[in-house]
């Protein structure tokens, strides 16, 4: 899968002011003016400016949101939940029955995590999560989704041929293990509780956390072995 598109963050104006395209690494003196952002970047700036002028948007709040998702929220949160479920049967039971209060108590709630369902992988069933509509994803537990999760390829194929998709992630399941695919919506988001790997008896929560990959909590991977 891995569908990361190659594109440039900024385009350099090759039109009116210059009559030839210019490579990105030109030295400063070749630029009589600032680098012109791409068309969508300019459109985003326009939106932000207009909404700020109308008092609908607070630029400081935007910075705060970006900082949160770039630096504070990520798959570590989900890994914490999984490691705890592996270590504490009562916690796991409560998590599987009704995840919301359990996650709220751990502080993992908020935007796009309003209604969480945790699905457990067993020898009998392997769970996998997709959003066929767009890219609904449990932000408080996993952060912002990776590019492949948002790609057309994953969104259409996860439901149609999940075993093939899993194979591309390097996961081959035993024939007897069923695959169940959960389609996220804006109302319900899923977290996969991966199987605890063998050879992890006696590991504490912190050591277990390190084995829980992001992909294993989407169901496109397995937890790592120590």
């Amino acid at each position: 899968m891995g569908g990361k598109g190659g594109f440039s963050l900024w385009t350099i104006d090759g039109g009116a002011a210059h009559d030839r395209p210019m490579p990105h690494d030109h030295s400063d003196h070749d630029h009589p003016h600032s680098l012109l952002p791409s068309d969508p970047a300019l459109r985003v700036k326009a939106l932000e400016t207009i909404l700020t002028q109308k008092g609908l948007v607070d630029p400081a709040a935007l910075d705060e949101i970006i900082d949160t998702y770039e630096n504070k929220i990520g798959p570590k949160n989900g890994a914490h939940v999984v490691a705890r479920a592996w270590s504490d049967p009562d916690f796991k039971a409560a998590l599987l029955v009704d995840a919301d209060p359990v996650l709220a108590e751990m502080g993992y709630y908020g935007r796009q995590g309003e209604h969480m369902v945790v699905v457990e992988n067993t020898d009998a069933v392997h769970n996998m999560v997709v959003c066929t509509l767009c890219s609904c994803y449990p932000w408080p537990l996993l952060g912002i989704p990776p590019g492949w999760y948002k790609s057309d390829a994953y969104r259409s194929r996860a439901v149609r041929e999940p075993r093939k998709v899993l194979a591309e992630f390097g996961v081959t399941l035993p024939e007897g293990q069923a695959v169940r695919v959960w389609d996220s919506t804006a109302e319900v988001r899923y977290l996969v509780l991966p199987q605890r790997p063998e050879g992890t008896d006696g590991l504490d929560e912190a050591a277990l956390m390190a084995l829980v990959t992001r992909d294993s909590m989407i169901g496109c991977g397995l937890a790592a072995r120590p």
Binding site: A61, D63, I66
Partner: peptide, 20 residues
């Protein structure tokens, strides 16, 4: 997390408007 600055800006703008 975001591949381009404008992705982050657009994301934040949308989340902010939703929360407001």
């Amino acid at each position: 997390v975001f591949e381009a600055p404008w992705h982050a800006q657009l994301f934040a703008l949308t989340v902010h408007l939703n929360e407001a």
